[in-house]
Simulated assay, not measured.
Amino acid sequence: MKLTNALLISLCVSGVSLFYLGSVSAKDSDSLTSKNSASIAPAMTISLKPIAQAKPSLSVLALDSEGLRVVNKSTGATRAIAFGTKEADVVSILTNLRGKPRNRGVNQECGAGPLGFASWADGLSLQFNKGRFAGWKVDGRSQGANKLTTIDGVGTGSTRTQLNKAYTVKVSQSSLGTEFSAGSLGGLLSGSKPADRVTSLWSGITCFFR
């Protein structure tokens, strides 16, 4: 975990060029979804072939407020898998990197409408809206979840102090618990003290019952 986090943090300070596929702006949705737009725009048309053929042994998956990133361990180069990318392409890339999803299906009970999902054993779950990548969530209760971090090294298991050092954070109490927002990232903390830890992390459209 330490090596992975060190790699991801180093990318921020070394000025590595980032290759964006596209992005969407955040917009309030209803109380059953995260505070991002329910309508996900298609990603810019850029070939996903370099990511789809990435070697798992040479790649690290990083969480991103606008989707996901694949980081090349050898070169430090990153490729974005942006919200709006086709569902089939996203699932294919992640299957290549980390194996087939443990579960796939459709959640019919979300305020944004039915959301497709794909989830893995380490707590990573992706959401899809109308065939497009719309959001992700990491459940810190799953074994291995703390290995999934942003390029800033923040993931489930990070302390509130670490979170505050990496982002401008707003914390509030909701029916979900101690909830925070850091730009387009959202999540839950185990409490309000500096040593309390991130227990869940998400971005994009995610279905919650509040």
Rank of each mutant, 00 (worst) to 15 (best):
N164Y: 00
Y167N: 09
T178I: 14
A166F: 15
I151Y: 08
G177L: 11
K165A: 02
Q173W: 11
L176F: 03
R160E: 14
T149K: 00
V154F: 00
K165E: 10
V154I: 12
T149A: 12
Q162M: 14
G155F: 10
K165R: 11
G157D: 01
G153E: 12
T149V: 06
S172T: 11
V154W: 00
T161G: 12
G177A: 10
T161V: 15
T159Y: 04
T161M: 12
L163Q: 03
N164F: 04
T149N: 06
S175A: 10
S175M: 13
A166T: 05
L148I: 04
I151S: 04
S172W: 09
S175T: 12
S174R: 12
T156M: 15
I151G: 04
S158K: 14
S174M: 15
K165F: 07
A166V: 11
R160A: 07
T161P: 02
L163T: 09
G177H: 10
G153I: 01
K170W: 07
K170E: 08
L148W: 08
K165S: 13
S175I: 09
T178Q: 13
S175D: 05
R160L: 01
T150I: 04
T156F: 00
A166P: 06
S172P: 02
K165W: 03
T178A: 11
G155I: 14
T168G: 15
G157Q: 10
K165Y: 11
S174P: 00
V171N: 02
G177R: 08
T159K: 15
L163F: 02
Q173G: 02
T168R: 07
S158G: 14
T178K: 09
G155L: 08
T156K: 02
T149C: 10
K165M: 13
T168L: 10
Q173D: 04
V171C: 13
N164H: 01
V171Q: 04
S175W: 12
L163C: 11
Q162Y: 07
S172K: 05
K165I: 08
G155W: 14
R160W: 12
T150W: 00
L176R: 07
K170H: 14
Y167G: 03
T150K: 01
A166Q: 09
I151L: 14
T168N: 08
V169W: 00
S158E: 04
G157N: 15
Q162D: 07
T149H: 03
T149E: 04
V169Y: 02
L148H: 08
G155V: 09
Q162I: 06
D152W: 00
G177E: 10
V154M: 05
K170G: 00
T159N: 10
G155R: 11
S158W: 01
G153W: 01
L148G: 05
V154N: 01
K165G: 04
Q173K: 15
T149S: 05
T161L: 14
